[in-house]
């Protein structure tokens, strides 16, 4: 029983980290209509900035640098590239982001090389014991922080002028623009928010259980794509739910792999994608996504 509970809690805490990334996908998508394939490398970039600055300025200031860097790069990508596309439409924007991803990832990979950069997180490999269940401190912190961040996001979108403006812009851009909402500003805010979430997720992805930063982090960020798609493309709560689901299912599949041998070894790596395809077959708009009528 405690084994089961450990797996569940592990899965949920990992799921919350994925949710941070998935929410970034959803926010960028609703605010600018871009499928941000470069999000994984922004996650890596945030963590990389933390790792290279922390020996000189300490861990917490470095986290701030990482957050600012990732947010800044997001805003720049949007301002310099996405808004200047020769043919702005979701398809070309998605392919553009693949190009940005190749550039960012290649350059970061080259800089990191074969090293594993330590992140210097103060919690290291500590564990927290609670009612017979041991959880890594990093994961617990990640979960708490993610919940705080999501509460903040809820407040932003529900209670502030900026957030309401972003929702209006997402619901109907041209009308929102006529009502005096500056789409350039809501778009930039969306990209900056996504960058912040990406950097935070990057810190937790690379501090535990990974020993530090390696380019493969961008790959684990890919797991957030099924999480985002599961939840619904345009829904931040959906992204959170999707992240939790993916984390939970992955943890349980890996934890009980010995009982699931008929599915082949390493099934835990693909189960999020299988889940995504099944959900898309049954509910193409995702779990919490809005189903739109076709507009002429």
């Amino acid at each position: 029983m405690s084994y089961f509970l450990t797996q569940v809690l592990n899965g949920l805490s990992f799921g919350l980290v994925l949710s941070l990334i998935a929410a970034g996908f959803a926010i960028v998508f609703t605010s600018t209509g871009v499928l941000n394939f470069a999000h994984g490398s922004v996650v890596l970039l945030g963590a990389y900035l933390v790792a290279v600055t922390q020996p000189t300025i300490g861990f917490w200031p470095a986290v701030l640098v990482g957050i600012a860097g990732a947010a800044g790069v997001g805003v720049l990508i949007n301002a310099l590239l996405v808004r200047n596309l020769a043919d702005p439409n979701p398809g070309t924007a998605a392919i553009l982001m693949l190009g940005v991803d190749i550039l960012l990832l290649t350059e970061l990979t080259r800089r990191i090389g074969n090293r594993v950069l330590p992140l210097g997180a103060p919690w290291g490999a500590d564990t927290v014991r609670f009612a017979g269940i041991a959880l890594p401190t990093g994961r617990v912190l990640a979960a708490v922080l993610a919940i705080v961040v999501f509460a903040g996001l809820w407040f932003l979108f529900a209670r502030t002028r900026m957030g309401v403006g972003m929702r209006a812009a997402a619901a109907d851009g041209p009308t929102a623009s006529l009502m005096g909402i500056q789409l350039a500003r809501t778009g930039a805010t969306g990209w900056a928010l996504a960058g912040v979430l990406a950097a935070l997720a990057g810190v937790f992805l690379t501090s535990f259980p990974a020993p530090g930063i390696a380019p493969t982090v961008a790959l684990s960020a890919f797991l957030a794509i099924p999480a985002w798609v599961l939840g619904g493309f345009d829904s931040v709560p959906g992204a959170v739910l999707g992240g939790l689901l993916v984390g939970l299912v992955t943890a349980l599949t890996v934890g009980y792999e010995s009982h699931l041998t008929f599915l082949g070894s390493g099934f835990g790596d693909v189960v999020p994608y299988v889940l995504m395809i099944i959900v898309l077959l049954v509910r193409p708009q995702g779990l919490l996504g809005s189903k739109e009528a076709v507009r002429v």
């Binding site: 998508f29 851009g173 493309f233 345009d234 708009q285 995702g286 739109e292 076709v294």
Partner: peptide
Amino acid sequence: PAISKETA
């Protein structure tokens, strides 16, 4: 996105 959101 409002126009591209024809998921289904």
